[in-house]
Design a protein around this nucleic acid. Sequence first.
DNA 1: TTTTTATTGCAACATTGTTGCATTATTAAA
DNA 2: TTTAATAATGCAACAATGTTGCAATAAAAA
Lengths: 132, 132
Amino acid sequence: MEKKKRNTKTKQLVMSVLEKANAALCHEDIEKQLSGQLDRVTIYRILQGFCDDGILHKITSESGKSHYALCHNCSLEKHNDEHLHFHCICCDNIFCLEAPLVIAPLPAGYEARAVSCLISGYCRDCSGASRG
Amino acid sequence: MEKKKRNTKTKQLVMSVLEKANAALCHEDIEKQLSGQLDRVTIYRILQGFCDDGILHKITSESGKSHYALCHNCSLEKHNDEHLHFHCICCDNIFCLEAPLVIAPLPAGYEARAVSCLISGYCRDCSGASRG
DNA sequence: TTTTTATTGCAACATTGTTGCATTATTAAA
DNA sequence: TTTAATAATGCAACAATGTTGCAATAAAAA
């Protein structure tokens, strides 16, 4: 039987940080924004819980660090993974892009269950004119 | 000025392990196969060096662990990242697939420099008949 | 053979994440 | 409202992965 979840101040605090964010946040980002209000472990557990609930998207950067963004088109059963994530090598932010991802058919015998695609480069704020 | 690289027994040992592999290997895999012949740090440094030389592909798994595979169609200037990587959730191997990756145009203002795409699911050995 | 310096091994440290457990706070029940 | 059950929290300790500094070693060049 599944544990019943509780709606705590602590979770609301983490959620408020995630809602304000305009890019995917890592544990460190969240901890800093809450500057000592919550224990590190608690933040880890809340993020994990939100992911289990299908509320959060988890994105692993090239460096192996986890980043989290609120799901917008996800259901509990299936995450809407078929969009791109973009890692800006200048400002170091990770964004969800609406651009669809097209994958050629896999070789015979392979069965896909999830897709994660991370493009790195320069984001809108850091590309072109801004860089010169 | 660039350091001149040396061709050591140690590097040859690591390379021989990579050459035998039919999937991308992580540090731990290599260390185990060499069972104590090399120091952990040395292996880390050699892998890093091979990546810098453009000899090795580095693939970060969803869990954040680094895996390495020999480059087949890469040049020093540009890695042939435009292929897929596949993580089997059954045997836990990571493979390079030849299937091409097609990405819809990015939103205006974004400049891509590298792409990394990891699909997870069941590989040829673990899918279909094998699982029932 | 000698010299130069890249490479190696060791110890220590850094970062990211997890587990166990006593305490606290939320929810449900009385 | 009060009490009981248990999910959530904080703390300490641990685990996995990766990095840095430095003295000793070995590869390549002179």
